[in-house]
Design a protein around this nucleic acid. Sequence first.
DNA 1: CAAAACCATTGACAGTGGTCCATGGTTTAT
DNA 2: ATAAACCATGGACCACTGTCAATGGTTTTG
Lengths: 136, 136
Amino acid sequence: MRIGELAKRAKISRDTIRFYERHGLIQSNVDRAADNKYRIYSEDALLTLDVIRDAQAAGLSIADITMFLGQFMAQDGADSCTGFLDTKIDEVTARIKASQRFLKTLKDTREALERAPQDGLDEIRDGAGNENRTRN
Amino acid sequence: MRIGELAKRAKISRDTIRFYERHGLIQSNVDRAADNKYRIYSEDALLTLDVIRDAQAAGLSIADITMFLGQFMAQDGADSCTGFLDTKIDEVTARIKASQRFLKTLKDTREALERAPQDGLDEIRDGAGNENRTRN
DNA sequence: CAAAACCATTGACAGTGGTCCATGGTTTAT
DNA sequence: ATAAACCATGGACCACTGTCAATGGTTTTG
């Protein structure tokens, strides 16, 4: 498929796809038979874009995702590869935990507001959801 | 405490704290007795900075966090407030799910690499962890 | 008291992740 | 065959989230 179809199906802009390509996140082929330079994508590209979306949601940078999706086995060894993966696994795990803590804070606030809609949020900000928060 | 101590304890730069203040995420007082304009923070500021960190990890923008931490009850009504909270709850929930999907992808890749360190990552990229991925 | 360490303000700079526009070529539909 | 729709490239531009440097005042320390 060409870039327009991919963009429409993946719900992402053509420019973003080209931006990703420039940064090594996704590859395209050109139909060497045709005389144009149109990018051609396989169905797999949709999967790749889904992984990119998830990876971004998980906090990875474009450079990180390029590392992950790229063939970095070639240049570096398997060691640096597993090191990278282990680091990212730790980072994403921590991020998920932080997100879950914050989700609880959001829900607690939502609930407190449900119970006392006229009182403002003072007592919420000063405590709700923070029972288990500690510093150092 | 003053900004330097807060910065050190919260492991964040003074500049970032001032940046947050300019954007309404955090408040400081000035010791009106003293003749200086030094910012004074309570211990609560540490808690607030923790919440900010979690909120950022959860994908909220500075503007979002200002909304959440600010007293937006004043200007808007409780309705827009719960609407905002519901939206953010949905967004964060989706983000956590995406992060968990990606974490699985990372772990599957890590494992496949452990099993076949000499083979490169070809078969991993072409399948591992994607058994349950579907498009639309 | 002098130096070192701290604080304030202002404004410039930087990295990230796109987005838009101008220009010009190609394909598709009528 | 011509208009509409699509595609490519290059570079400018954008919002966001900080970070740094210059300048000048304040506090703490030896």
